[in-house]
Simulated assay, not measured.
Amino acid sequence: MVGVSTAERAGGAGQRGGGADRTPKQDRSRATRQRLLEAAVACLAEHGWAGSTVAVVAMRAGVSRGAAQHHFPTREDLFTAAVEYVAEERSQALRALFPQGPRGAGADRRAVVAALVDLYTGPLFRAALHLWVAASDEEQLRPRVTELEARVGRETHRIAVELLGADESRPGVRETVQGLLDMARGLGLANLLTDDGQRRERVVAQWAALLEETLA
């Protein structure tokens, strides 16, 4: 009887404050998911695919392995979601750098080029690179990474076109923008082994000048 009475009291409290009780639980779940995604990217960037297990990520995120698998049933789910999450965060951060939109950004294309290059010189790119290498050997991972890379690539291209104020209906403009992104990826690869900052600044300045000429 005591148990029933306690349950009834708990139930009544839940009914009175059900919305308030559910919201913190949802917030905690979102926070746990975000910690897992950020930890997965950090582990992948630091340890590569072979050294990044669900258990290692869970420990770094400060959650149990069971909690990690509740959010991401498989290792592939976790790491593809992690790279996609941070890619979206970086895209939003890039847009936030130029809140004035295409017209204002287009007036300073060198800043846009530098910001785009920065997308490929941080832990996200390093993590993504490890994921690409793993996907070349892991059959179950390859389709997910291929689809993810295509989506991230399309979104980055759209952002670049918007911020540069580029008119892709003009001949050669689309190829020039894509060439910029390919160049940025190459600079990111060069930066993996050594700090290539000085040469990168010169290349950014040259590409900005080329874009001014092509997009004018």
Score class of each variant (00 low, 15 high):
V2T: 15
G3D: 13
S5C: 05
S5M: 14
T6D: 14
A7R: 12
E8Q: 13
E8W: 11
A10K: 04
Q15T: 14
G17A: 15
R22E: 12
R28P: 03
A31C: 10
R33H: 09
Q34P: 08
R35L: 10
E38P: 01
E38G: 09
A39Q: 02
C43V: 02
L44N: 01
H47V: 10
G48I: 02
W49Y: 06
G51N: 07
S52Y: 00
T53D: 04
A55M: 13
V56I: 14
M59H: 15
R60S: 08
R60C: 08
S64L: 02
H71Y: 10
T80Y: 01
E89D: 15
R90Q: 15
R90D: 15
L94N: 03
R95V: 07
A96S: 15
Q100H: 09
P102H: 02
A107G: 09
V112L: 02
V113R: 00
A114V: 05
A114Y: 04
D118Q: 12
P123M: 14
P123E: 15
R126W: 08
L129I: 11
L129T: 15
H130R: 02
L131T: 00
V133M: 10
A134Q: 04
S136V: 13
S136R: 14
Q140Y: 11
Q140L: 13
P143E: 05
P143S: 03
R144I: 04
V145N: 01
E147K: 11
E147D: 10
E155D: 15
E155P: 07
T156L: 08
H157L: 15
R158S: 06
A160K: 02
L164N: 01
A166V: 03
D167V: 07
G172H: 06
R174S: 14
E175F: 01
E175S: 10
V177R: 01
Q178T: 12
G179Q: 06
G179F: 00
D182N: 13
M183D: 08
G186I: 08
G197N: 08
R199Y: 10
R200M: 10
E201C: 09
E201M: 03
V204Y: 01
V204L: 01
V204N: 01
Q206V: 09
Q206H: 07
Q206K: 03
W207S: 08
E213C: 11
E213F: 09
L215Y: 05
A216Y: 00
